[in-house]
Structure formats: structure tokens, C-alpha cells
Simulated assay, not measured.
Amino acid sequence: MTPRILLLGLFGILINACTPKAEEEITFVLLPDTQTYAEKYPDILDAQINWIEQEAANIAMVIQQGDLTQNNNEEEWQLVRNAFRRLDDKVPYVLAVGNHDMGSEPGKFADVRNTTLFNTFFPVAHMAKLPAFGGIFEEGRLDNAYYLLETGDYKWLVLSLEFGPRESVLVWANDVVADHPDRLVILNTHSYMYSDSTRQGHGDYWRPQGYGIGKDTATHAVNDGEQIWQKLVKKHPNIRFVFSGHVLNSGVGTLVSINEAGFPVYQFLANFQEGVTGTVNGGNGWLRILKVNPKENNLFITTYSPYVNAYREEEAHQFQIRYPYLKTGY
């Protein structure tokens, strides 16, 4: 593959097929929308978890982007829980709630903000005992939670927010980030980026406002990607990454924006579920690997499937960001 440079403001993305050196890297594994595996292809989710277990010593954290299940029923939740429990005390992991993980009954997606099954199969009492757990927004509910992680000289805060986070949730999230000014912040939420590499907003498909919960008002009013940027992300100098899934079409998008303090924010959409253009077997086990290389001052993003044991080499799926500004003190 011929290297290609894309200029985004003052920061460049170098598209390259190279693989970074292993030493001094910080590795995050992003595991988007597992819903079709839970419904139809449990062996693919099993392959992903097997690989994570084998690589656990080299992985700082696994971050899942929501839609853990397709139909929000007990059978699928049992399967997903059994899979992730294998990671307990081996590698920290973060889960997000997607629109398919909430509803008044199985098969009704986000008509109401009911996440009873998610919190039954992943109870706070259990999750709070695992590495990196920091705190939650509502007692007994994992829908909105934060995690604290340290990797060498880097201190991280990973903030996982519900699908279409409510106004009250964004108020809480602002407070959590402000209380940890010495930490680099990763925001993880199901719906944020769109497939045209912009933040999801008016005119886009699959906005939270288009579901039943979109009718809620006042402190319960939902927010899409652009609103999350305006009300939360851009206001804090230390929020540097946003990860999301949910959106179909190509299922991918990349955006670098500059926050109010003048620092870059790296925003990524990755989704491989059934319905994404060209997807087979509900995603074929593709996951994202983000490597932070402090020594070489680079970020490397690759897309790998333990199920087929292959990497995707298209520019949208394998690239490097040169000279990211990742200071930990402000």
C-alpha cells in the first residue's frame, strides 16, 4: 500500500500498512456491536474472546461500544455474560448500552429507557470488584460508568455513556471529567459518529431522537453526537478520544476536531454488524486495535478478526495518526 497523508487542520493522518514496534505500546481493543453474534453466530464472539484472553497481558483495556445483544432477551444476555466473564480479572473491560439493549420488552428497541436485563446480567455489585472500575451515575445501574486506568506515565479515565445520553447524564459526565484533570479521557458511547465522518446530527439516520426515548424531555431529553460534542466533549482539554458504533452504511468514520483548549480530539466510528455494507456473518469477528506508541509519538489503528485470522488493509480500517498531542497535565 502506498503511504498517503490526509491533513486535518494542524494534525495529519498517515495511511500506512506498517505495523508498529511492540515495545512501550499501550493497546486498547475496541469491540463494537456484538449483537449479530449473540443472535446467530456465538462461535464468532467466542473467537474474539479467546484471542483477547490469549493477548490479555498485552492489552490495557477492552472497550465495547454497545448493542451487546440483538433482541434484548435472556438467552442472548446469558451468552454475552458468559463470554465477558472469561475476562474477569484478566483484562479490564468496559461495556456500553445500545438501543438493542434497552426497551419495554424483547424486540422493542429503545422505546423506553429500560435496561433491566443488562443490569441483571452485569450487576454493578460484580462489575465494581473488577480492575479499573471507578463509579456510576445511578445506584445499581451500569448504564453510565467511569473507569480509571494507569499505563506507565499515562493516566486514563474511560467514560462509558448510555445510548442517547440524557441531559442529566451529561451534567454528571462533565463533573466526572472536571474532577480528573490529570487524566486523558476516552469517551465511549453507542451513537456519536456518522458514516460520512461527521458527528451524528440533524438529517442523519439512527439518531437517538428517532426512537421512543427521543420523546423524553427536560433532564431526560436525549442527545446525539453533535450535541454530546457541544455539551461535553469540546469543553474539556483532556477528552481526547471518542469511540462509537451503531451506524450502518459503511460502518466506519474518522474525525479529528479541535476542542476549546486547542487540543485534538480523535473520534472513531467502527461497526461491522449485519446490515453494514459488505458485512458477512454479522461482522466476521472484526474488531479495532488502537495502539498508542509514546516512544514514536504515533497512534496506530488496525482492524483484525481472530475468527478469520486476518487484517483489513483498506485505508478506512488501517491507518496511523502522527504526532498526537497526548499530554497528561494541563
Rank of each mutant, 00 (worst) to 15 (best):
P3G: 03
G12H: 12
I13W: 05
L14A: 11
I15F: 14
C18M: 11
P20T: 08
P20F: 11
E25G: 15
T27R: 15
V29P: 03
P32V: 12
D33W: 12
T34A: 12
E39C: 13
K40W: 14
D43Y: 11
I44C: 08
D46R: 14
M61S: 07
Q64N: 14
Q64L: 01
Q64W: 05
Q65M: 13
D67G: 08
Q70K: 14
N71M: 13
E74A: 12
E76P: 03
R85Q: 15
L87V: 13
Y93T: 11
V97Y: 02
N99K: 04
D101L: 02
M102E: 03
S104H: 10
S104P: 11
P106R: 09
G107E: 11
N114T: 09
L117E: 06
F121E: 01
V124N: 02
H126T: 13
H126V: 15
A128L: 03
K129I: 00
D143P: 00
A145K: 02
Y146E: 00
L149A: 01
E150L: 00
T151S: 12
G152D: 09
Y154Q: 01
W156P: 00
S160L: 00
E162M: 10
E162H: 08
V169C: 10
L170E: 04
H180N: 15
L184T: 07
I186F: 14
N188E: 10
T189S: 14
Y194T: 06
D196N: 15
D196V: 08
S197Y: 03
S197M: 06
T198G: 03
R199H: 04
R199A: 00
W206A: 12
W206Y: 14
Y211A: 08
T217E: 06
T217S: 12
A218C: 01
E226W: 05
Q227F: 01
K234W: 00
I239K: 07
F241M: 07
F241I: 02
F243Y: 13
S244N: 04
S244C: 09
H246Y: 05
H246S: 03
V247P: 00
N249W: 11
L255F: 04
E260G: 06
E260R: 11
P264R: 01
P264C: 10
P264M: 03
Y266W: 13
Q267E: 15
A270T: 14
A270Y: 13
E274L: 04
V276F: 04
T277R: 08
G282C: 07
G283N: 05
L287K: 13
L287P: 01
R288E: 02
I289L: 13
L290Q: 07
K291F: 05
P294T: 12
K295F: 07
N297C: 05
N298M: 15
N298P: 00
L299A: 07
I301P: 00
I301H: 10
Y307S: 09
A310Y: 08
E315Y: 10
Q318S: 14
F319K: 07
F319G: 04
F319H: 13
Y323R: 15
L326N: 09
L326F: 09
L326I: 08
G329H: 12
Y330G: 12
